[in-house]
């Protein structure tokens, strides 16, 4: 009973701390919209989801002059994506991974694929590698690579234990290739094939180290 009380207190304290760190909702929002968004955030907080992005989404909508109904819809959609991402990636997923997972879902990646990526990313490289992989996936899809191809490519690298830096390098290389005139699809296919060979190659000179990042890339 004492343990339950301590857990309850600790949980309540964590929720209170999370709420305190959230940005305040914009004053321009009408009372009904504010009530709806607070309710969405309360539910997300209770479910253990990160809520900072929800408040930021409301602020973004206000800044862009969107009406209250559209802002509430956007906040609700983001909360739903975070929940789906958490279901796919597991209850212990890092907030940065959940945010990246929600972005991937909203970019067109299916929950089943996200689950598969989460399983592939359960490696010693850990959350930073998985978060970086998902960020890379969203970037590729935004560049016009079909979600299925982008997901397969990223999953392949995750299964080989690619570290965070490998995905950064991959983004840089693909960006440079596209600038040089290659199609996004070709650039991703070619660069991932090379990365797979490097990661899967037997230990030897240079095999353990990813190539240095391309300084000309847009990734900073």
């Amino acid at each position: 009973m004492l343990a339950f009380g301590v857990c309850l207190t600790a949980g309540a304290g964590r929720l209170a701390a999370q709420a305190a760190s959230e940005p305040a909702l914009p004053a321009r929002l009408g009372a009904p919209a504010k009530t709806a968004i607070v309710a969405i955030m309360d539910s997300a907080r209770a479910a253990g989801l990160p809520t900072t992005g929800l408040a930021a989404k409301a602020a973004e909508g206000v800044l862009k002059g969107a009406d209250d109904a559209r802002i509430v819809d956007a906040v609700r959609a983001l909360a739903r994506a975070l929940g789906t991402a958490r279901d796919a990636l597991g209850p212990t997923a890092d907030p940065s991974v959940l945010d990246a997972g929600a972005s991937a879902l909203r970019a067109g990646v299916t929950p089943a694929t996200l689950r598969s990526l989460g399983n592939a990313g359960a490696t010693p490289a850990g959350a930073p590698a998985l978060a970086s992989a998902l960020v890379t996936l969203v970037d590729f899809v935004a560049k016009g690579v079909p979600p299925a191809l982008a997901s397969q490519s990223i999953e392949q690298l995750l299964r080989l234990g690619a570290p965070e830096s490998r995905f950064v390098t991959l983004r840089n290389q693909v960006e440079a290739d596209i600038r040089d005139g290659q199609s996004p699809e070709t650039a991703v296919t070619t660069r991932v094939r090379t990365s797979v060979q490097q990661l899967g190659a037997p230990a030897g000179p240079g095999a353990a180290h990813p190539p240095p990042p391309d300084p000309a890339s847009q990734t900073v």
């Binding site: 909508g61 802002i71 935004a142």
Partner: peptide, 28 residues
Amino acid sequence: RLARDSSAAESGADDFGVPNSVVLVGGS
């Protein structure tokens, strides 16, 4: 007034019909 960073990539469609600029920050 909101202004896009013309030197950065564009986010594409967003929730409010006003695309953002995007920066990818790399890891070590």
